[in-house]
Each structure stands twice: as C-alpha cells, then as structure tokens.
C-alpha cells in the first residue's frame, strides 16, 4: 500500500490562536490529546514509513517547533532519506533553529503570509507581533538559502490586500505562494461568517493571482479544492489547481502525535492507530472506504463528479459530521453554481 507522502503532526500545542485554524482537535473537543516520548514517537514514525514507503513527510502541528525533540525527528527522517516539508507559524524560527534545519534537511518551509497589513496578519494569527516575526524569519531563511513558500489563506478579512500581500512575499524572496481558500474545520468553523469569502471575491483574487504569475514569472498554486461550478478555473493558464486525493497513492494520510491516522490533516476521522493496526487495514477499512466514496447528493450526475468530489469532504465532515454532506463553501453558495457540461 504505497503512499508518496504523509503529514506528521508533531504536537497539538500551539503558541498562536489562528481564526482560521483547521486542526481537527479543536473541533470535536473529544479528540485524543497528548504526545509520546521521543523513542516511541520515532518507533511509530518508522512503522508508518515502513508500511507506506512514503518518501516525503510534511511536519506540522500545532506548532512543531514547540516540541523539544523536533530536531531528533528531523534527523531521523533525514537518515532514512525522506524529504521534509516544514509547516510552521515561523514565530520560533530564530537563527539557531534555522541553522539546525539546514537546506540539506528541510526541503521547503511553509509559512503563513496572511496579509501585508500587520494588524490583519496579527489578528488572523491571534498573536500580536506575528507579522514582524514572520517577515524576519522569511528574511533569515532566505539568507540561509532555504526554500520558502508563503501560505495565503483567503478570507473576507485579507482578500482586499491579496495583491499587495503577494508582492510582499515576492519582495521578501519567497519561492512560491499557496493560495488556499479558507476551509472551515477546527476553530475555523466558529469563525465561518467572519471569514468565508464569496465566490465572486475569490474569483477576483484568482484573476489577480494569474496576473501576478505572469507579471513576476512567479509560481502560485491554489490549494483546497476549488469547485469549478462555483469558481471558473478554466480561464487560468498559470495557476495550478488540485482536487481531493484522499484514498489514492497521492493522498497525504495524517499521523497525529499519538499515532492516530486520519485520511488527511483536515479530517477529524480517526481510521485507527498505527501502533496497533497495520496501515493497510486502515487504508482499506470501512471508515476509509466510506470517506473515499462520500460526495454530496448535489453533485450527482455532474460531468466532473468523480474528479471534483464536491470540494473538501473533510470540511463537510468537520462542519456536519458527515463527509457526504456539502463542503461548507458549496453549501453556502450552491444556489449560484453553474452547471458543468
């Protein structure tokens, strides 16, 4: 049961309180919490890698740098020849940390690039000073020749300054930007009315993104599936879009700090624990089969039903406890959806 990559959530602790946070343990509240000691963590990670054959691990959290044994985990992965992506809020990326996470160990850092406006970036992060720490960390990472991707989470709060925010990223030297539409999950569900942008607002931002790509010869990838019935993605030649890959070999099964495995980092569904259940049993089990087959009734008969799958099932699951419910974005705007084909 080979997988290309997986996500490892090193810790559930975080020093930020992002309005848009999708961490599964923030909703539902009964999600198992805790961490294993270093030895057990490495054994569990080794078992997961052995059973999946993953060659890329994305380290995430919470804030992974809050874990004191993060460097041991990184070295463990490097020794096994596994490539590493590192998702961090950048608040703890001081020069010493950057030196220990050198380019021969970490391939890409993903840092939040929420707004060029300090107040908005800080507000969305739930942490005063977040903007200054982020810009400083990006500059330090680039001085160390690290590859950095800025992650823009598109919400009603920050979309009006999207272009300027992208230009801030380009000026700082980031190597690319991920334009993620806000995907409610975790704490983000509470803030849905505050953060959810309309399809028209997102479409305008994507138009801008395409222009930025051309003007600066700059790569922007659009993450979090964008249903083509709500957003006209066919008009873009430079932007890249993806769909949900759950259950395929390109899926990014997610391992939490206790060894629980989920279909992806947005989904709250626990398929089993890698310490006691073989990965293959989880990947072919009933819960995963149901997750894979789920799609909203609204999408039945659509020409691209099998590829689009109705947007993000994990968000539907987080919001409605049912992966075959409508993705909250689709639920909010399906009245304006255009018919495909």
């Amino acid at each position: 049961m080979r997988q290309d990559s997986l996500v490892f959530e090193l810790t559930q602790r975080c020093n930020y309180d992002c309005l848009h946070c999708y961490n599964a343990w923030k909703n539902p509240v009964d999600y198992p919490m805790g961490e294993l000691p270093t030895g057990e963590t490495l054994a569990m990670l080794g078992k997961m890698l052995g059973e999946t054959g993953a060659s890329l691990v994305t380290l995430s959290g919470g804030e992974p740098l809050l874990r004191s044994d993060v460097y041991e985990v990184v070295d463990f992965l490097v020794k096994r020849g596994v490539a590493i992506n590192f998702i961090t809020n950048a608040s703890l990326l001081d020069e010493a940390a950057i030196a220990r996470l050198s380019p021969d160990k970490v391939g890409v850092f993903e840092v939040p690039l929420l707004s060029c406006e300090r107040a908005i970036h800080d507000r969305m992060s739930g942490a005063p000073g977040a903007f200054d720490k982020m810009t400083n960390a990006v500059a330090d990472l680039k001085l160390r020749r690290q590859r950095v991707v800025g992650v823009f989470v598109a919400t009603r709060l920050n979309l009006s300054a999207w272009r300027q925010t992208a230009e801030l990223g380009i000026a700082l030297g980031v190597d690319g930007i991920m334009f993620n539409r806000f995907n409610p999950g975790g704490r983000g569900i509470e803030n849905l009315p505050l953060l959810q942008a309309t399809p028209a607002e997102l479409q305008a931002a994507l138009d801008d993104a395409e222009r930025i790509c051309e003007e600066y010869d700059f790569p922007i990838s659009c993450s979090i599936a964008m249903p083509p019935c709500l957003l006209d993605t066919r008009r873009y030649r430079r932007l890249t879009f993806g769909f949900c890959a759950a259950g395929t070999e390109r899926a990014y099964y997610t391992l939490d700090p206790l060894g629980n495995v989920r279909p992806c980092n947005h989904s709250p569904t626990i398929l089993g624990n890698i310490r006691t259940v073989p990965f293959e049993a989880m990947a072919t089990g009933r819960a995963m089969r149901e997750f894979k087959a789920a799609r909203p009734g609204f999408c039945r008969g659509c020409r691209i039903e099998e590829t689009c799958l109705g947007g993000c099932k994990a968000a539907a699951e987080a919001a409605c406890r049912d992966p075959s419910a409508m993705d909250p974005f689709l639920a909010a705007f399906h009245g304006t959806a255009r018919k495909l084909g």
């Binding site: 990559s5 992506n85 890409v108 993903e110 680039k142 590859r147 991707v149 030297g173 980031v174 190597d175 690319g176 991920m178 993620n180 790569p219 990838s221 993450s223 979090i224 599936a225 890249t240 879009f241 993806g242 769909f243 949900c244 890959a245 390109r250 899926a251 990014y252 992806c264 980092n265 947005h266 993000c312």
Partner: peptide, 14 residues
C-alpha cells in the same frame, strides 16, 4: 494528475 488539494507544486528557486 499529480496536483492534490493541498501540496506545494514544484517551485523554482528565486
């Protein structure tokens, strides 16, 4: 085909 809903595509260094 390789694009997933959440993964950075290959970026060229600046």
């Amino acid at each position: 085909k390789m694009a997933t809903c959440y993964a950075p595509m290959p970026f060229r260094p600046v």
